[in-house]
Amino acid sequence: MTQLFLEQALNGLQFGLMLFLLAAGLTLVFGIMDCINLAHGSLYMVGAYFVAAAAQAADSFWLGLGAGIAGTAVLGLLLELSLFRQLYRRDHLAQVLATFALILIANETVRLIWGPAPLLLNPPEALAGPVEIAGFFYPAYRLVIIAFGLAVAGLLYLLVAKSRVGMWVRAGASNREMTEALGINVRGLFTAVFVFGAALCALAGGLLGPLLAVQVGMGESVLILAFVVIIIGGIGSIRGALVGALIVGTVDTLGRALLPTLLRALLPADAAATLGPALASILIYLLMAGILFFKPQGLFPARA
């Protein structure tokens, strides 16, 4: 029982940290630039494809990961300069339409280049199997993901909470006009944040690629989850994104693990078998609706 609980806790942590990587970039773009980016999930997909393609070419997962992240960052830069810059001042509707268009273009272009079948991306040989920690087994690769997630979260915390750039970013998130008035190059800051967000997407895509699948449309399901995370956490707040990501990761994992058993104890077998999985799959949305009902600005509102 302890093993089961511990393993599920690790699973929740791993899932939550990966969501955090995606949500961090999204919440900053959203919070500072007030820009809805539905194509954030596409950056995650393109990042995963870049990593997979580079890893195949270089025959090394780590080289592929590095190259893929760099490639996605460049793509992010080009996108910011050519398109997003024009979107910041537009209303949410225009942003939704433009980034929805980007999703269509990204999905179709990836399909054109790499074909409709999923791309193969294997973890480094040494990490393919399980490792034993204090008498129980856990996939080595998932531990690596957790380590990466914790490192990035720590780094982001230092960067945002302690550094000068972080101060500007936080200032930008809570009051854009005032920050501009203070003479900070908000334009450059926007570009940097966007590119950084794209790189984080590629990191998440590259790390999750071997675990999940590198395929067309992989960005959409994860995009919705990332949105749920930043809405729960409060838009523009890195701390909120971290807390939200961990809540969503844990609730989703525990819900899938415990709900069916719990319902079986409470309800007739037939009803439990139907209701359990259904309820588990909507749990996080229920959670989000519930939180918004009581705190319409999320848990940690960045704007006063």
Binding site: Q3, E7, F137, R256, P260, P277
Partner: peptide, 21 residues
Amino acid sequence: EEMYTKLGQLDYAAELAQIRA
């Protein structure tokens, strides 16, 4: 023992932990 997952689910960590148990 039957375990039903979400259609289109990609991560099976929670299910695998239960199988292990």
